[in-house]
């Protein structure tokens, strides 16, 4: 089965992995960069008829130092908070130009990409507007859980207890004091055709979800957990392992919502204690057993709620 058949069958076999690279090697990402893996594989899945609008952030800064570029598909960066709006402009332009016969009629995947801050903090308004208006595009949030590009400042998607440079642990602080903002749920509240979470450690699941997102007519939102060795403080060869632990511990759950119906796509049979995930990363090293127990409790509750919700359907 090749990639084209994969696209048609909406399934993915690892042997179908295309040899073509649309995110070129030689970019300036850190060793073990999770987001770079996400870009590489998202583009492999989508193929060359793809245009990317990317927000300011890690992804932009590692890939586009003038006069070099890592992008082998058309790519545009304009600003930080507006990627969904830029992508919306591209989508409507293709639609009207095809209608008026100025450019050939064809399917072009319009993809917006932004980090967790560019999506859930500063970019939330533009994202909501574009989802509400129903543009036919794929929005990818690559979530590395802080403003890593500017040196690891907290975002609304930084997890509870994590140390960042603007949520430091101190005598009266445990680091990030708030729970991770649930952006996929916000996206789903726009009643768009497709919402999914994914993780770079579950590649077949990621491929399948990208193919479904590309197939959706209307907005598709894909939230990809992309671990960051630099900001999460773990050895760079452990990126895949850390992502896997996030899913296996129930800290980050893999599901999709198709036309409002939620389904877990990776079910974890034996859940890992969150302490194993937390203790593997330097950003949590100040947490006490009591703190970890609190996180474990909340992760458990959320996972049970998710199971119940997914089971009802």
């Amino acid at each position: 089965m090749d990639m084209e058949q994969s696209r048609q069958k909406r399934s993915f076999a690892p042997r179908a992995l295309p040899h073509e690279e649309y995110f070129a090697p030689g970019h300036r990402g850190c060793q073990g960069c999770g987001p770079a893996l996400a870009f590489r594989h998202i583009l492999k899945a989508l193929g060359p008829n793809t245009v990317v609008a990317e927000a300011t952030g890690c992804g932009e800064i590692i890939s586009s130092p003038y006069p070099q570029s890592s992008w082998r598909v058309p790519w545009i960066h304009t600003a930080f908070e507006n990627t969904a709006a830029t992508a919306a402009g591209i989508e409507v332009a293709y639609k009207v130009l095809m209608r008026k016969g100025r450019i050939p009629e064809e399917r072009i995947n319009v993809v917006a990409m932004a980090g967790d801050g560019g999506t859930g903090d500063i970019g939330l308004q533009a994202l909501s507007g574009a989802l509400e208006r129903g543009h036919d595009f794929i929005y990818v949030c690559y979530d590395n859980e802080a403003y890593m590009n500017t040196g690891m400042q907290r975002s609304g998607l930084t997890p509870f207890g994590a140390f960042t440079t603007t949520s430091p642990a101190g005598k009266v602080s445990k680091g990030q004091s708030t729970w991770k903002k649930d952006v996929p749920a916000i996206a789903a509240a726009h009643h768009i055709p497709y919402v999914a979470t994914a993780c770079i450690s579950y590649m077949s699941d990621l491929y399948r979800k990208i193919l479904r997102a590309a197939e959706a007519r209307g907005p598709a939102y894909l939230h990809v957990l992309a671990p960051c060795p630099t900001g999460w403080r773990y050895p760079s060869e452990k990126t895949i392992e850390i992502g896997r632990m996030a899913v296996r511990s129930g800290v980050f759950n893999l599901y999709e919502i198709v036309d409002g119906k939620k389904r877990l796509t990776v079910k974890v049979r034996e859940r890992l204690p969150v302490s194993e995930y937390i203790k593997a990363q330097g950003r949590f090293r100040h947490l006490t057993d009591e703190d970890i127990a609190y996180i474990q409790r909340r992760v458990y509750e959320e996972y049970e709620a998710l199971l119940a919700e997914a089971a009802q359907i």
Binding site: V51, N82, A85, A88, V92, Q125
Partner: peptide
């Protein structure tokens, strides 16, 4: 496009103009 802000109005115009509209 009934955008949700003027910031998005200009961002949308930038995307559309970049795509050739």
């Amino acid at each position: 496009i009934n955008v949700e802000s003027e910031h998005s109005a200009m961002s949308c115009c930038i995307g559309a103009a970049a795509a050739g509209a």
